[in-house]
C-alpha cells in the first residue's frame, strides 16, 4: 500500500471518529430536549403539548399559563443551564488535572461559591448579579488556596484532591454555621445551599447563568485542542506547542466562573460536575472532546434528577438530594480504585 492510499484510510478513520462524536452529541441533545419537554408537560397535572406550545408562544391559556409559564418553564430552563455549566466546568477540571476526583465539587470550589452565595443571600439579603459575582470571586479564591496549599515542586493530583476535600469540609461547616444563625431559617433555603435545588426559581435568575455559559463556555471551547493535548501529560503537551501555564489559567478561570455563577443560582447541585464527565466519557469513548457531551449529560442529570425528586420518590426532594445519591457510590468506587492504581480520565 502506498502512503497516499493509506492516507485515505487514515482520513476515513478520522472522519468516522468525527461522525461518531456528532451522533453522540445529537443523541444527547435530543435527550435534553425530551427532558425539557417532559418537565413542561408533567407535574401534579398533565398539560398536553399543544397547550404548552401555546403558553410558550405567549398566549394566555387558562390554568396552563401559570403552571407551565411561571412554575415549570423557569425550572426547566434553569435545570438545563446549570446542568450544562456544571457538566462542562467539571469535566474541564478533570481533564486539566487528569483525575476524575479533581472535580470542582469535590475539591471545594463549589463549596466556596456556595458559601459566598449563602452569606450574601441569608446574612446580607443581597440578590441578583452581585451574588453571582461574589460567588465567582470566592470560587476562584478557593481554587487558588487549594492549588497553593498543594504546591510543592508542581502540583501532584492526589495531594491537591486531599487538600481540596479538607478545604471543602471546612467550608461546608461554615455554610451550616451561617444557615443555623440565619434569622429566616428555612429548610428549603438551607437545602438549596447544601445540596442544590431548582425549587422556586424565576426566569430572570437564569440570565446570569446563560451569560456565564456563553462567555466561559466559549472560552473553554476555544481551548478544546489544548485541553485534549494536556491529557497526554504536561511535557508532551508543551512539546506539541501548548502553552501549558496559560491554558491552565484560562481553563481554571472559565470553569470556576461558570460553576460559581450556576452555584449562585441553584446552589451546588451535588455531584453533577463530578459525574457528567465520566458518564460522557463512558458514552462517547475516546472519540474526541468531552466538553460538549459532558455539558449535555449535566443538563440531563439535573433535569432527570429534579423530575425524580419531585414526582417519583414518595416525598419531594430537591434535585441535589437525588444527584447526590447517584454520585456517592461512584465517589466511593473511584476512591477505592485510585487507592489501588491512581486513575485518570
Amino acid at each position: 500500500m502506498t502512503t497516499i492510499s493509506f492516507a485515505y484510510t487514515v482520513a476515513a478513520g478520522r472522519l468516522a471518529r468525527v461522525r461518531q462524536w456528532r451522533r453522540v452529541v445529537v443523541a444527547l441533545m435530543l435527550l435534553v430536549l425530551a427532558g425539557f419537554a417532559l418537565t413542561l408537560m408533567l407535574g401534579q397535572s398533565f398539560t398536553p403539548p399543544d397547550e404548552v406550545l401555546r403558553v410558550l408562544a405567549g398566549k394566555d391559556v387558562p390554568g396552563a399559563s401559570f403552571t407551565v409559564g411561571q412554575l415549570r418553564l423557569p425550572r426547566a430552563v434553569m435545570a438545563v443551564l446549570v446542568g450544562m455549566c456544571f457538566g462542562m466546568g467539571g469535566v474541564a477540571f478533570q481533564i486539566m488535572l487528569r483525575n476524575p476526583l479533581a472535580s470542582p465539587d469535590i475539591i471545594g470550589v463549589s463549596s466556596g461559591a456556595s458559601a459566598a452565595a449563602v452569606f450574601c443571600v441569608v446574612v446580607l439579603s443581597m440578590d441578583g448579579a452581585a451574588v453571582a459575582g461574589i460567588s465567582v470571586v470566592a470560587g476562584l479564591a478557593v481554587a487558588l488556596i487549594v492549588y497553593g496549599l498543594s504546591f510543592r515542586n508542581g502540583v501532584a493530583g492526589t495531594r491537591l484532591i486531599l487538600v481540596g476535600i479538607g478545604v471543602a469540609a471546612m467550608i461546608d461547616s461554615f455554610i451550616a454555621f451561617v444557615l443555623s444563625r440565619a434569622p429566616s431559617w428555612d429548610l428549603q433555603e438551607a437545602l438549596r445551599w447544601i445540596t442544590g435545588s431548582v425549587n422556586g426559581v424565576k426566569l430572570d435568575q437564569a440570565l446570569p447563568v446563560l451569560v456565564a455559559l456563553a462567555v466561559f463556555g466559549g472560552l473553554l471551547l476555544s481551548r478544546t485542542r489544548d485541553l485534549e493535548a494536556l491529557r497526554m501529560g504536561d511535557d508532551t503537551a508543551a512539546a506539541l506547542g501548548v502553552r501549558v501555564g496559560t491554558t491552565r489559567i484560562v481553563v481554571m478561570l472559565a470553569s470556576v466562573g461558570m460553576i460559581a455563577v450556576a452555584t449562585a443560582a441553584t446552589g451546588p447541585v451535588m455531584f453533577v460536575a463530578f459525574l457528567s464527565g465520566p458518564i460522557a466519557a463512558r458514552i462517547l469513548g475516546p472519540k474526541g472532546s468531552l466538553l460538549i457531551p459532558s455539558a449535555l449529560v449535566g443538563a440531563v442529570l439535573v433535569l432527570g434528577g429534579d423530575y425524580i425528586g419531585q414526582f417519583v420518590l414518595p416525598h419531594r426532594y430537591p434535585v441535589g438530594v437525588v444527584t447526590g445519591a447517584l454520585g456517592a457510590p461512584y465517589l466511593l468506587y473511584l476512591i477505592i480504585r485510585v487507592n489501588r492504581a491512581g486513575g485518570s480520565l
Binding site: R14, R17, R231, M232, G233, D235, T236, A239, G285, P286
Partner: peptide
Amino acid sequence: LLPQSPIAPEGITVAD
C-alpha cells in the same frame, strides 16, 4: 520532544 513518560488517554486509538 518525546518525554520520558508520556500518558496515553484511556482507550485512545493509535491513529488518533
